Computed example of a mutant assay.
Amino acid sequence: MESVLVMAQVSKTVMPTMVSNGQVFDQKLVVFATDSFSDQAVLSSSLHQLWAVKYSPTMRLDVSYSPKGALSTFPFPGSTHHLEGLGVKLNERRADILISRGLGLTKLYNLFNDPDVVGDEDVELMRALHVQVDEAVVAAYGWSDVELGHGFHTYRQVRRWTVSPAARVELMDRLLEENLRRAKEEQKLSVPAGRKGRGGQKAAAEVDGQHAQEGLF
């Protein structure tokens, strides 16, 4: 691959970015072996972010992203042309903003998640793009009936631009149900251990010792 997705293992943004593969990656980076912009859109969505916060350890208020807990269990939706296009758009528009303003990813998302930042065209564009990404990811699952209610909401002591608390609970419940459904399908097919396909075949409930009926919150 000429490019791959990477993400700082410890951060409060939980946000991947596409970079050149012609370099040695630091051990503090999580490297996703994909050059798919559809994957970038999904991994940049509020759905994956909420899942990662739930199934990764934390360091103070930062998330220490767990590939085993947050990625291998995440039930990816199917790729769509719309998701691919939004992934490209998010990557390109964000790169333009970072270059033009001399910002790093963390500083940009600090502005993005700051409710006092109003009227900044670049920040408003980023918020609008992430709303579009979330809507496209939800649609890819067939869950467009969920009212996302984007705005500034607090979750685990962190205030950020994301979906509403009610949407968060509903989406997390549906993601867990989908995770468990796929795990059961895998058991029926008797897929040997070590050959788990992407899509969260290992039940997330197993990761934290909970059962689905116990609820997430």
Rank of each mutant, 00 (worst) to 15 (best):
V146D: 05
E121Y: 00
V6T: 15
L83A: 04
G209P: 09
L47M: 15
K12N: 13
S66L: 07
A193K: 14
D145Q: 12
G104L: 09
T34I: 10
N110T: 14
V53K: 14
A8D: 15
L98G: 02
A212K: 11
G69T: 11
E170F: 00
Q23R: 15
G151W: 12
D39Q: 11
A166C: 01
G200K: 01
S3V: 12
K68P: 00
S144T: 14
S100G: 02
F25I: 09
F25A: 04
E186F: 06
L111H: 08
A95P: 02
L71E: 10
T162I: 02
D208A: 03
K68E: 14
A95V: 08
S190F: 00
L83P: 05
V169G: 00
V207K: 09
M7S: 06
V63D: 03
Q23T: 15
M1Q: 12
E206A: 07
Q213L: 05
N179D: 06
V6C: 08
D35C: 03
I99L: 12
G104P: 02
A193Q: 14
Q157T: 14
G85I: 03
T80L: 02
E214W: 10
V31A: 04
K12I: 12
R101N: 13
R93L: 11
H82Y: 03
T73P: 03
V31F: 07
L86K: 07
A167T: 08
V88N: 07
S190C: 10
G197T: 12
L43V: 10
G119I: 09
A41Y: 07
G215K: 09
Q157R: 15
